[in-house]
């Protein structure tokens, strides 16, 4: 009897989890209803930076977004990347100069362990990815962003998967926007491929038409640089 009960509870639990999972996947990628709300409701935004051109592309995009809506910005870069957060700080201080006190809403800067260094083998990446994931979980619990902007560095994968799990569990509903790097012309990066295939990105952008033909759910938006 007790065993039967345990099994039924387990089955119901699995069924509910699956239903929730399907719901989350179905809802991901659906736009929010347009509302009249303007600058009144700022959105906590997580911005994932990365060396090798990623940061420059990301700051270029941020320059085009209304800063008062995407405020309380949190920047994350790899622990081995010294330049990116410095560039983000410069960007933020240039905003303060530009707009005065209106955007001083403190932005935050974090470093994160990388899941994979350039040139590291995919095998040892498994272990380093685990460590990076634990660190990412800790950061995500602290930040709980509403919007995640990323464009390819491997550090965005654990963050985006955790954001997805937060949606399943009901901790925080967030929106992931992925802009594939301009360097990717023929093939998606590993990060891009994962977020595309797993339907984790709400909106997926590519900068070259060849990629859009291969990945029809992506938006082709031309070069950002």
């Amino acid at each position: 009897m007790a065993l039967n009960l345990a099994i039924s509870i387990l089955v119901i639990g699995i069924a509910l989890t699956l239903i929730r999972l399907v719901y989350v996947i179905a809802r991901t990628g659906k736009p929010l209803k347009p509302t009249g709300r303007g600058a009144s409701q700022p959105i906590g935004t997580l911005i994932v930076l990365g060396s090798g051109g990623h940061t420059a592309e990301m700051l270029n995009l941020l320059g085009r977004l209304p800063k008062d809506r995407f405020s309380s910005r949190v920047y994350i870069a790899a622990a081995t990347d010294n330049m990116s957060l410095q560039k983000a700080r410069l960007f933020e201080s240039s905003l303060v100069k530009e707009a005065g006190e209106k955007v001083v809403e403190a932005s935050q800067f974090f470093q994160i362990y990388r899941s994979r260094e350039v040139g590291q083998s995919y095998l040892t990446s498994v272990w380093t990815t685990l460590i990076a994931t634990a660190h990412a979980l800790w950061l995500m619990i602290r930040i709980r962003p509403k919007v995640i902007l990323c464009n390819g560095p491997g550090t965005c994968i654990p963050l985006c998967i955790i954001a997805f799990l937060f949606k399943v569990v009901g901790i925080r509903w967030s929106y992931v926007f992925y802009i594939e790097s301009i360097a990717r012309v023929q093939r998606l990066s590993l990060s891009g491929l994962i977020l595309y295939k797993l339907h984790i990105a709400d909106q997926f952008f590519v900068q070259w038409p060849q990629l859009q033909r291969k990945y029809p759910r992506a938006h082709y938006v031309g070069c950002l640089m």
């Binding site: 736009p31 929010l32 209803k33 929106y175 926007f177 802009i179 709400d202 909106q203 938006h219």
Partner: peptide, 11 residues
Amino acid sequence: VAKIINRFLGF
């Protein structure tokens, strides 16, 4: 890109 993101979020 900025436009699509804005619209998606209902702004």
